[in-house]
Computed example of a mutant assay.
Amino acid sequence: MSTSTYSVVGMTCGHCVSAVTEEVSQVPGVTAVDVDLASGGLTITGDAPVDEDAVRAAVEEAGYEMTAGR
């Protein structure tokens, strides 16, 4: 199992959290997604390391910006 943590910029409400969670959950290999609105934290769990570029693309598809790991 592999866990990665990132920061997401621009989230302001529960809908934002839902949008990011939904998009990132669709990235191949992702088994769990945890988004913390207060800190902007995004924690992803997968059976193997997940492609960071794919995660970044999913966050951008949701309308937000992912920064380097926290």
Rank of each mutant, 00 (worst) to 15 (best):
M66F: 14
V27K: 04
G40M: 05
Y6V: 09
G14D: 10
R56Y: 03
A32P: 04
D51F: 01
S4P: 09
R56P: 04
T31R: 14
A48H: 12
A58N: 06
A54Y: 13
E52D: 15
V55K: 00
V27N: 04
G69L: 02
V20K: 01
G40H: 05
V30M: 05
A68R: 11
V59L: 12
D36F: 03
A48L: 08
M11E: 05
A57M: 08
V35M: 08
E60H: 13
D36V: 12
D53S: 12
T45M: 07
V55G: 03
G69F: 05
D36E: 15
T31S: 15
G40W: 07
D53T: 14
T45Y: 00
V20W: 02
C16H: 09
Y64E: 11
T3Y: 02
A57I: 10
G41D: 08
S7V: 08
G63R: 09
G29L: 02
V33H: 06
V8R: 10
T31A: 06
R56V: 08
D53G: 14
D47A: 15
A19G: 00
A62T: 12
R70P: 15
Y6P: 00
V20E: 03
T31C: 05
L42M: 03
P28D: 13
E65T: 15
V20Y: 04
V35I: 01
I44T: 05
M1V: 13
A58S: 01
V17Y: 10
T45G: 13
Y64W: 08
A68M: 08
Q26L: 14
V55Q: 01
T3K: 10
C13P: 00
T45L: 04
R56E: 09
Q26C: 03
V9W: 01
S7D: 06
L42Y: 07
L42F: 07
D51I: 05
T21A: 10
H15G: 15
S39C: 07
G10I: 08
V33D: 03
S2D: 01
L37K: 01
L37S: 01
G63E: 07
V20N: 05
H15F: 09
R56G: 02
Q26H: 08
V30H: 04
T5C: 07
I44N: 11
V35Q: 12
E52W: 02
A68H: 08
G63T: 07
S2G: 04
P28H: 10
V9S: 12
S18Q: 14
A19S: 13
G46T: 11
D34V: 08
A58P: 01
C16N: 10
V35R: 11
S2Q: 04
V55F: 00
A54F: 12
S2N: 10
G14T: 04
A32M: 11
H15E: 06
S25G: 09
S4I: 06
S18E: 14
R70Y: 11
T43F: 05
T5D: 12
V17E: 13
E65W: 06
Q26S: 13
T67W: 02
V8H: 08
T67C: 00
A54I: 11
V20R: 03
A58F: 06
R70F: 12
A19R: 07
T12P: 00
P28Y: 09
E52A: 15
Q26R: 14
A38N: 09
G14S: 13
L42A: 03
A38F: 06
A38Q: 09
A48V: 06
A19H: 02
A32D: 14
D53R: 03
D53Q: 12
Y6W: 11
A57P: 02
T45H: 05
D36T: 15
E23N: 07
D36H: 08
L37R: 03
R56M: 02
